[in-house]
Amino acid sequence: AEKTGIVNVSSSLNVREGASTSSKVIGSLSGNTKVTIVGEEGAFYKIEYKGSHSYVAKEYIKDIKDE
């Protein structure tokens, strides 16, 4: 089941290729951006990003809701 969340950062949140802080950064999301969460892996959520799937750190996503 998909969930949505809100990016909870003051500046921007790195979007990564994989579920690791050493993964390549492929983009960023600004605070209060709504994201669609399709899964989770460790400390990361797998999200829909620009037509494919990428990862963001869970600690920076708030207001998780089931869609």
Rank of each mutant, 00 (worst) to 15 (best):
A1K: 14
A1R: 14
A1Y: 15
A1I: 14
A1F: 14
E2F: 15
E2W: 14
E2C: 15
E2T: 15
E2P: 15
E2M: 15
E2D: 10
K3T: 08
K3H: 08
T4K: 09
T4R: 09
T4I: 12
T4W: 12
T4L: 09
G5P: 02
G5L: 04
G5R: 04
G5V: 05
G5I: 05
I6Y: 11
I6R: 09
I6L: 09
I6T: 08
I6P: 02
V7I: 08
V7F: 03
V7D: 02
N8V: 14
N8C: 15
N8W: 09
N8L: 09
V9D: 06
V9S: 12
V9T: 13
V9K: 10
S10T: 13
S10D: 12
S10K: 13
S10H: 11
S10G: 12
S10N: 11
S10A: 13
S11E: 12
S11D: 14
S11H: 14
S11G: 15
S11K: 12
S12V: 12
S12P: 09
S12M: 12
L13V: 15
L13I: 15
L13A: 14
L13F: 03
L13S: 04
L13Y: 03
L13Q: 04
L13P: 08
L13W: 02
N14A: 15
N14F: 09
N14I: 14
N14K: 13
N14P: 15
N14E: 15
N14Q: 14
V15G: 01
V15K: 01
V15Y: 03
V15T: 04
V15E: 01
V15L: 06
V15S: 01
V15I: 07
V15P: 01
R16I: 05
R16M: 15
R16V: 07
R16G: 02
R16N: 07
R16F: 15
R16Y: 15
E17I: 10
E17G: 06
G18K: 13
G18H: 13
G18Y: 13
G18F: 14
A19R: 03
A19G: 05
A19L: 04
S20R: 06
S20D: 08
S20G: 06
S20I: 04
S20P: 02
S20H: 09
S20W: 06
S20E: 06
S20Y: 07
T21I: 14
T21G: 09
T21Q: 11
T21V: 12
S22W: 06
S22L: 10
S22E: 12
S23R: 03
S23D: 05
S23E: 04
S23Y: 05
K24M: 08
K24Y: 04
K24Q: 08
K24V: 06
K24L: 08
V25W: 04
V25D: 02
V25P: 03
I26G: 01
I26N: 04
I26V: 11
I26R: 04
G27K: 01
G27V: 02
G27E: 01
G27I: 03
S28V: 14
S28I: 13
S28Q: 14
L29Y: 02
L29Q: 01
S30T: 12
S30N: 11
S30E: 13
S30F: 10
G31N: 15
G31T: 13
G31A: 15
N32R: 08
N32G: 15
N32W: 12
T33E: 10
T33R: 05
T33P: 02
T33H: 06
T33Y: 06
T33V: 10
K34I: 14
K34L: 13
K34G: 04
K34N: 05
K34R: 13
V35C: 04
V35Y: 02
V35T: 00
V35K: 00
V35D: 00
V35M: 02
V35I: 10
V35N: 00
T36M: 09
T36Y: 13
T36Q: 08
T36D: 04
T36F: 12
T36K: 13
T36E: 04
I37K: 00
I37S: 00
I37G: 00
V38R: 04
V38Q: 03
V38F: 06
V38A: 04
V38Y: 06
G39M: 03
G39L: 03
E40Q: 08
E40A: 07
E40V: 08
E40C: 09
E40N: 04
E40F: 05
E40T: 07
E41F: 08
E41Y: 09
E41M: 08
E41V: 11
E41Q: 08
E41T: 07
E41W: 07
G42L: 05
G42S: 04
G42V: 02
G42K: 05
G42A: 05
G42E: 06
G42N: 07
A43E: 15
A43G: 12
A43T: 08
A43D: 15
F44M: 04
Y45R: 01
Y45A: 02
Y45F: 09
Y45P: 02
Y45D: 01
K46M: 13
K46N: 03
K46C: 10
K46H: 05
K46Y: 06
K46Q: 08
K46G: 02
I47A: 00
I47G: 01
I47F: 02
E48V: 15
E48G: 03
E48C: 15
E48L: 15
Y49C: 04
Y49S: 01
Y49L: 03
K50I: 06
K50M: 14
K50G: 10
G51Y: 04
G51C: 07
G51R: 04
G51K: 05
G51T: 05
G51P: 01
G51Q: 06
S52D: 08
S52E: 10
S52I: 12
S52K: 13
S52N: 11
H53D: 05
H53S: 05
H53P: 06
H53F: 15
H53L: 11
S54V: 14
S54H: 10
S54E: 03
S54G: 15
S54D: 02
S54M: 12
V56D: 00
V56F: 00
V56G: 01
V56H: 00
V56I: 08
V56M: 02
A57G: 09
A57Q: 13
A57L: 15
A57M: 11
A57D: 10
A57V: 08
K58G: 02
K58Q: 05
K58S: 05
K58M: 07
K58C: 03
K58N: 02
K58P: 00
E59A: 11
E59N: 07
E59W: 06
E59S: 08
E59G: 06
E59M: 11
Y60D: 08
Y60P: 02
Y60N: 08
Y60F: 14
Y60K: 06
I61Y: 02
I61D: 00
I61L: 06
I61K: 00
I61C: 03
I61G: 00
I61V: 08
K62T: 14
K62Q: 11
D63C: 14
D63Q: 12
D63Y: 11
I64L: 09
K65V: 13
K65S: 13
K65Q: 12
K65W: 10
K65Y: 10
K65E: 11
D66M: 14
D66L: 13
D66R: 08
D66N: 12
D66G: 11
D66H: 12
E67S: 13
E67M: 13
E67P: 12
E67G: 13
E67K: 13
